[in-house]
Design a protein around this nucleic acid. Structure first.
Lengths: 197, 197
DNA sequence: CATGAAGCGGACCCTCGGTCCGCATCGTAC
DNA sequence: GTACGATGCGGACCGAGGGTCCGCTTCATG
């Protein structure tokens, strides 16, 4: 493989940029208010360093997102119930959605930056693909539920970052209430029995 | 009222701009590929004319969207069933969502432009507010359904422009299949009986 | 037709993502 | 330790695009 280990200062700068960006996104008004120049300045490096390390703006945001998401990914892929693979589907689906929602509540600006970053829709990001296929696979194990693919999309759509942001900031909906609403909605979708006729 | 009727050429230019923008958005690759300068050139006016008439980019997009949406709005507010107010709630909800979906299918780029236009989330647009309150009001008439506000948000989220675009372009899902899936999903949410316990 | 107001256009400005290139630093071979 | 490529650095620079300015034109009224 063509993997070459990076130079020591490069690794240090990369970490500094990640830390600075994380901090800036956490304390900003809106994600697009923080520019690449800001991040470079906050990290104490030149702009080129930042672009060399991450390619472009979306690359940096993806890297940040990935770092934040890793623990949850692990919990989902090999952790204990209610997130891990051993959970029965009917409990795991709401647990997964709740995890996504909590993640977006805890990382509002980052999620907004990722999902609303202008041209590229969130649906091209590998993160979404993973959530979707995981959720779809679990849904598929539930008898009487068709359209697992579309259902997964629709359920995940209820956790869109800008919706979460809207409910939180504009309507001042408290975190727990939002989790409860999402749980109730999910339950409605799952509880639905097979067609009546 | 401070309304002053505009000069004749101003009205003509405004119409020309709307027509040009509509055309450009309809035939472009992606909404942000069409610039304000492009629109001005296509309309045969100067850039300032365009900004004077619509304020800024989002103003223009809103105006376009509004124009396209008007017939559907009328059908919803005073038309015959299944969209109009006389429809029983259990039929009207899926009809409303289907109308939204079809609208976004028919106006993909415009909807993408409106919903993904960088900073401002679609939730601040007056259009969304109207759809949401209409849908919420109808949901409220369905017995045994709580969280009508959140449910309305969640259902509308399933018709997000970028999701529609993703399903259409990336996954080549045909229009009718998508409508069927959305109808099935909506039915699941509505069919759900009162809690079991 | 005169005249002021309303509108016009495109040159201009500014911000921001992204690149270039001469210089510094790293790490290795001796 | 020192020499010397390779790797990385930084900030000046560029281009694109949204939005503005201002001198000129066109409308509409008496």
């Amino acid at each position: 493989m063509p993997e070459r280990k990076p130079r020591k200062d490069a690794a240090r700068n990369r970490a500094a940029v990640l830390a600075a960006a994380d901090d800036l996104f956490a304390h900003c008004e809106s994600p697009e208010a923080v520019t690449m120049a800001d991040i470079a300045a906050a990290a104490g490096v030149g702009k080129a360093t930042l672009f060399r390390a991450f390619g472009d703006r979306t690359g940096l945001i993806h890297a940040l997102y990935e770092a934040r998401l890793e623990p949850i990914r692990n919990a989902v892929e090999e952790g204990p119930p209610p997130l891990g693979p051993a959970t029965p589907p009917l409990q795991r689906v709401p647990a997964l959605l709740d995890a996504v929602l909590c993640f977006k509540l805890d990382n509002r600006h980052l999620a907004l930056a990722l999902e609303g970053t202008g041209s590229d829709s969130p649906y091209q990001a590998g993160h979404y693909e993973r959530w979707h296929s995981t959720l779809q696979a679990v849904l598929e194990q539930i008898p009487g539920l068709t359209d697992s693919g579309f259902t997964a999309h629709a359920l995940l759509a209820a956790t869109r970052a800008d919706l979460v942001e809207h409910l939180t900031s504009r309507q001042h909906m408290p975190r727990e209430q939002m989790r409860a609403h999402l749980a109730a909605f999910t339950a409605k979708v799952l509880d639905s029995r097979a067609p009546l006729d």
